[in-house]
């Protein structure tokens, strides 16, 4: 933050008002933060309780046990490792496809002067207006026809391109000087080499941002795998959690243990690379 003291609350106010304001500020922000984080605490304490009741888990759990995790691990219908690997595969593949396709298209739309380019770009952008649920049914029927229901390719292919990614990368490539490419061409690079050797390395920050954003979206995607994955061994984590919820309803300790296992990797990743996540999020807001 480059902002100076001017914004300091009550900078011009007298001492008493200043302290009141500051206290109030911290009180509001802290209360809100408590509201945001308490559910995570409750999830943790419930997951660690054998017979969770409202009073036993609200603040300090009465008893601590790993019993729920052991139960989850032992249940033959709970395929934690498989679900985790499915989700990793799904999210990684979706991310790689998006990065590859979107950077090609983004580069081309920014740096290659080809016939119909602007119309095409407008076309891509306007598809952002199409709500996902309109295509849910026809894409499903298409995948039925292709025999791709309940397969990895069925999960991944329809998510392999994304107009937002194209938009983001086009903006980024546009901000890079065209002279670089011209120079590369003088050196004998063809268009693809120019893209791959000159511009792509310069787009790393944008690619990282888009990658994290896409990966997170796929990791958390619930609706699409819900429709495409029909069997236990094809589930990704969010769908699996939904299935666990239906199967073990009211066994809250077990459900929260399952929820925690799904949530934990994301939270750990987030806390480790907070800035990337937040940057990714901000960039997605910039498109407006």
């Amino acid at each position: 933050m480059a902002r100076s003291n001017y914004e300091y609350p009550g900078y011009e106010a007298s001492g008493a008002t200043y302290w009141t304001k500051t206290t109030l500020l911290y009180a509001v922000v802290s209360l809100g933060a408590l509201w945001m984080t308490l559910p995570f605490w409750w999830t943790l304490t419930t997951a660690l309780s054998q017979n969770p009741t409202a009073s036993s888990v609200t603040f300090i759990p009465a008893e601590l046990t790993l019993g729920n995790f052991v139960t989850l691990w032992e249940r033959p219908d709970i395929l934690l490792v498989r679900w985790f690997l499915n989700t990793v595969l799904f999210a990684t593949a979706v991310t790689l496809f998006n990065l590859a396709f979107d950077s090609l298209a983004g580069y081309s739309l920014a740096k290659v002067d080809f016939w119909g380019r602007d119309t095409l770009f407008l076309g891509f952008i306007s598809t952002m207006m199409i709500p996902g649920m309109v295509t849910l049914i026809p894409v499903y029927l298409l995948l039925v026809e292709l025999n791709w229901i309940n397969t990895y390719q069925g999960l991944i292919a329809p998510l392999a391109a994304n107009p937002f990614g194209i938009f983001l990368l086009r903006q980024h490539f546009k901000s890079l000087p065209s002279a670089l490419g011209d120079a590369a061409k003088i050196d004998g690079c063809n268009e693809f080499q120019t893209f791959y050797k000159v511009y792509l390395p310069l787009a790393k920050p944008a690619l990282a941002t888009l990658g994290i954003f896409t990966f997170m979206g796929a990791w958390n995607n619930f609706e699409w795998p819900l429709i495409i994955a029909n069997s236990n061994e094809m589930y990704t984590l969010p769908v699996a959690l939904f299935a666990v919820r239906n199967q073990y309803f009211a066994e809250w300790g077990l459900m929260m243990a399952a929820a925690l296992l799904i949530v934990a990797p994301v939270i750990i990743a987030f806390l480790a690379a907070q800035n990337y996540f937040i940057q990714g999020m901000s960039l997605s807001g910039m498109k407006g």
């Binding site: 219908d77 309940n150 994955a229 029909n230 069997s231 236990n232 061994e233 299935a243």
Partner: peptide
């Protein structure tokens, strides 16, 4: 089939 048998 362990889950959505009918849909499948």
């Amino acid at each position: 089939v362990q889950a959505k048998y009918k849909q499948k």
